[in-house]
């Protein structure tokens, strides 16, 4: 099935998908990924500024996908995990270059840019962050 994703929506999120750009509240110090429009702690007193998240973290939790959604069928079994970054922010991402059986909570991982999906044979190729066991 060819499913073309809206180009502006993808394009606006390149900083987040390619460089893990989130933000940080200068008032309370909390980091956010994906970036927030307002700080949920400080509300109108919050001062958000762009912040490139650290590219390292550890596995907070994970699951092994054996029955995948459309477009991901060829990748099963694959790992989807919640990664706690050094800033304490949690990110959900695929873990690649790993045997699912080797996964464990607390495993150290680092971010890599990988192909996430393709909009059919003629459409755009979508790239973004995944994580691999730290080498």
């Amino acid at each position: 099935m060819t499913h073309r994703k809206a180009l502006p929506g993808i394009w606006r999120r390149f900083p987040e998908r390619y460089r893990l750009e989130g933000n940080k509240c200068k008032n309370c110090g909390e980091h956010f990924f994906p970036p927030r429009i307002i700080c949920p702690n400080c509300r109108r007193d919050g001062k958000l500024e762009g912040h490139e998240m650290s590219k390292e973290g550890e596995i907070y939790s994970y699951t092994i996908i054996r029955s995948a959604p459309v477009g991901f069928e060829d990748q099963t079994p694959y790992v989807l995990a919640i990664i706690e970054l050094k800033e304490g922010t949690k990110v959900t991402a695929q873990i690649t270059d790993v045997d699912p059986e080797e996964m464990e909570i607390g495993m150290e991982v680092e971010e890599v840019l990988r192909k996430i999906s393709e909009d059919g044979k003629k459409g755009k190729i979508n790239y973004g962050y995944k994580f691999v066991p730290k080498s």
Partner: peptide
């Protein structure tokens, strides 16, 4: 290359 790797991802990792 793995399924999710191509010249763009390889070039990016080398560049980083």
């Amino acid at each position: 290359p793995d399924q999710d790797e191509d010249t763009i991802t390889i070039a990016t990792q080398a560049a980083r």
